[in-house]
Design a protein around this nucleic acid. Sequence first.
DNA 1: ATTGTGCTGAACAATGTGTTCGGATGAGCG
DNA 2: CGCTCATCCGAACACATTGTTCAGCACAAT
Lengths: 186, 186
Amino acid sequence: MDRRVRRTRELLRRALVDLILERGYDRLTVQDIIDRADVGRSTFYAHYTDKDDLLLSGMEDLARAFEEHMERHFATRGHPNPVLAVFQHADQQRDLYKALAGKRGAEVMRAGLRRRIGEVGARRIHGFLPDQDVALPREVTLEFLLSALLGLLIWWLDDDLPYTPEQMADMYMRLAVPSVRTVYGI
Amino acid sequence: MDRRVRRTRELLRRALVDLILERGYDRLTVQDIIDRADVGRSTFYAHYTDKDDLLLSGMEDLARAFEEHMERHFATRGHPNPVLAVFQHADQQRDLYKALAGKRGAEVMRAGLRRRIGEVGARRIHGFLPDQDVALPREVTLEFLLSALLGLLIWWLDDDLPYTPEQMADMYMRLAVPSVRTVYGI
DNA sequence: ATTGTGCTGAACAATGTGTTCGGATGAGCG
DNA sequence: CGCTCATCCGAACACATTGTTCAGCACAAT
């Protein structure tokens, strides 16, 4: 008797995403969500403790998909580019990304996405940049690059800009690479 | 009979800032705020329609102060640097900035701050960058630079990093300028 | 001293939250 | 097929928060 459980959770998650895109996460009530999903009140609380809990479970799914996508990207490409991979993944799951990370989404989600992308970025950066302290601590550079990436990503999603993931990644690299090269003398 | 009004609003605003720094805006109730400010419930609603309304009024004050600071900066300095001015102003009003724009603050506020700083930035950028379309639309560059600036600013504030405003502005410029020069061939 | 503006605090309806429980349903298994 | 139990339903509940109203108090201004 598991099919019902999965069905219920799926209904709730879809209702949540739809409603976030329509009205924004903050203005939603549990009642709205279960009405849209056509699920009983007590059923909701049997599965999730909170509105936030439901949201978080959605994030976990997205995070898993993200990790898999990154692994595939690194395994497939001769010259992998994590930035491109991020834009491509967001493009594939546009609605989900918009609902969870966009301006109508919740702060927790943006923070979560930032952390995940940041981890990938940190690994890359530490491989590229010299260890010794120069004028610029690597932390600062990382924060700069990460903020710019997430800013561009969310802007691109929310405003439905016509650029392809490849164009976005290319523009980002052009704006990021020369300065970093200059600063670290590479 | 105006002194009482100003006093009440001041009490409420201070209580709000304190409580945001302690618990975060989302977890505050109107009751918390008026208890802390020691102000009657009906008095609160006589001044503000909402918790959000109180927050917005705080933002307007900050915005006014920000505009004044920018004007002073441009009037005083031979070689004005808006980025430096932003970091300096945030340093002067650290608690207010942290409460309104930091991670415990509200999304509305970050958006508002972003817009204001963005306007200043847009004016500068349009003066510097060539008009003709190159590979990179100015919009994209602006978004990149603005996101990076706000990201660094909020990170610096929230984590109480030991860098001075001058150091932050300098590091930002190093990370921003060379790429922009390269892209636009300046 | 009088006046009126602003503050108080209790009481109120309305809305949302999270829990509980008896009963309906249908998936899975023998 | 028929049994059984996990799952779902939905009404009812206590509780918290919101935003309004109003009668009465306090004090600034003149």
